[in-house]
């Protein structure tokens, strides 16, 4: 398998791997490292790549496990000051500010969710995988996923409503 063959397999989902890693690890740099690590692992096992039923699902599972390991490892226990990803956007109207503010809120609320729910929301609402695929990736049954997803969505909704009404009610 040549590099270009490998890239054609990997390119469609490498962004998804990165976003999943970022969801779990929060920092962009850490997520980049994790993605790179996953890609390198895949590249090393490129001989077996044809035997995998679903390379994408396999990579997502790998990413999930890798990020869990990262979070558990000692390295993650040190408090790190992460340069939050400031975006150089044009200063707009107040509405724009408000919008981005509430967008940030969703991100913050999502970071506060339990890891499993974070994962499921990421895979379903952001990456739009079918429940069957998610079940395969996370090695869970579909019902459990639906329950977790429902909980997560309700939590996000409630917290958003609270922040939205803060100072009003």
């Amino acid at each position: 398998m040549t590099q270009s063959d490998f890239l054609t397999i990997v390119t469609p989902f490498k962004d998804k791997v990165f976003r999943l890693a970022k969801r779990l690890l929060v920092s962009t740099e850490e997520a980049e490292d994790a993605t790179q690590e996953v890609m390198i692992k895949l590249w090393k096992n490129k001989k077996n790549i044809k035997n995998y039923k679903n390379v994408e699902a396999f990579s997502m599972t790998m990413t999930k496990n890798f990020c869990y390991d990262k979070l558990k490892s000692k390295q993650a226990q040190n408090l790190k000051i992460v340069h939050n990803n400031y975006e150089d956007t044009q200063v707009g109207l107040q509405k724009q500010l408000e919008d981005s503010d509430s967008l940030d809120w969703v991100g913050k609320i999502m970071n506060g969710l339990p890891e499993q729910q974070k994962l499921i929301v990421q895979l379903r609402d952001i990456e739009q995988y079918e429940f069957k695929e998610i079940a395969q990736m996370l090695d869970m049954n579909e019902t459990a996923i639906r329950v977790a997803l429902s909980r997560a969505r309700k939590t996000i909704k409630e917290q958003l409503t609270n922040t939205h009404n803060y100072g009003i009610k």
Binding site: D15, F18, R19, Q36, I40, W43, D99, L103, V106
Partner: peptide, 20 residues
């Protein structure tokens, strides 16, 4: 904001080059 966030998050890309 929930749905806006979901659509925004799905557009983030991995730009780093992986050394193969």
């Amino acid at each position: 904001p929930m749905f806006a966030y979901f659509s925004k998050s799905s557009k983030e890309q991995f730009t780093k080059q992986v050394p193969l």
